[in-house]
Nucleic acid binder design. Structure first.
Lengths: 192, 192
DNA sequence: GTCTATAGTGGGATAGAC
DNA sequence: GTCTATCCCACTATAGAC
């Protein structure tokens, strides 16, 4: 049984297999409740009431489980950004759209810090992810940034702000709302 | 003997102790030649021709050794940015200055990928770093960005671009020079 | 200041019985 | 599909002799 099995929708809402879904859910619970270092085969198995070796009947490695979580993160971020756009008035400006995307991106990451880190740290295991999911997740930013160079710059800015905040890199009193506004304002400027 | 011992200059060029310096050099060699996972007490000791337990006479933990490397990275980045500014004409524009800073930041990181990752991943062990070094390293950016919010946004952009590039997150053909230019151009705009 | 020896912990993964 | 048993790995860190 492959960890990267069936799903059809770009947003990947479909269920892979009940077994894989429950493994992913258990892994997510371990990650979010016990932290990054606790994400081990033994603990994931324990959540399911089985032993670690049994997991290998469903998944070929720990990497496969991490890939399930990364896919979950991509769906979460993409979904959060789409939801944010849906709350905007009729024809929002580029700047308003980007600001909404930035807010939702940041909020999602702050609500799921370990999952965000897992999904953005190191190389992306693209072979293990549902086809199209990576692009689906990034699509809102691409749509509202002025061109692909701006889109990449905007994504880099958002990721940089987010990971530096999660890692406590900014000074204690720093006004991060203002820094986000400054960045989004700069990057959104141009023909609207 | 404490790992965080003597140094006086803000740029930390002074030697802590010959022993600590040689440990730091050995650790750096392991990191850059063998990669992140190879940075273990055993291997650092092996480079010095001793056994791992002997390291504990000079350093109280592995974290202390990592802190030595992080300090080295901060000195490297700060130094590279200052060197880049020194090559600029008399009174460079803000934009030209920021562009030079960005280029040197990126170049330094690409030349020392594992060291850059080590220094920017997770929380900064501020207690173990020479006082003032963190600020010294960031000072060039603060000086040429328009205000602290812009400075933070610029730093986040630069870090985001850098780490995403190091982790191979951009599409294969992506024109990263253009993305850097787009970001720096946007963030530098304003009163000069 | 170095050594040997070792404690103590944890991890990923496999074999083979049931 | 699950188990037990186990392998093999690697790590940080300490104790105590020299």
């Amino acid at each position: 049984m492959r960890a990267t099995s069936a799903r059809e929708e770009p947003d990947g809402r479909s269920a892979p297999s009940p077994r894989l879904a429950s493994i992913a859910a258990a892994a997510l619970a371990v990650l979010e409740e016990e932290g990054r270092d606790a994400l081990t085969m033994r603990r994931v198995a324990a959540r399911l009431g089985i032993r670690a070796p049994s997991l290998y009947k469903h998944v070929d490695s720990k990497d496969a489980i991490e890939a399930l979580l990364i896919a979950e993160a991509l769906r979460g971020i993409g979904g959060a950004m789409r939801a944010a756009l849906a709350t905007l008035p009729r024809r929002p400006s580029r700047r308003a759209s980007l600001a909404a995307l930035a807010r939702s991106y940041r909020s999602w990451a702050l609500a799921h810090p370990d999952l965000y880190r897992l999904a953005t740290e190191g190389e992306l295991p693209r072979e293990r992810l549902p086809a199209g999911l990576e692009a689906w997740s990034a699509e809102p930013v691409v749509r509202f940034a002025a061109g692909e160079d701006r889109a990449r710059a905007t994504w880099a800015f958002a990721h940089g702000m987010t990971i530096l905040e999660l890692d406590g890199r900014f000074p204690p009193g720093a006004d991060l709302d203002a820094a986000w506004a400054a960045g989004v304002g700069s990057l959104a400027r141009g023909r609207d």
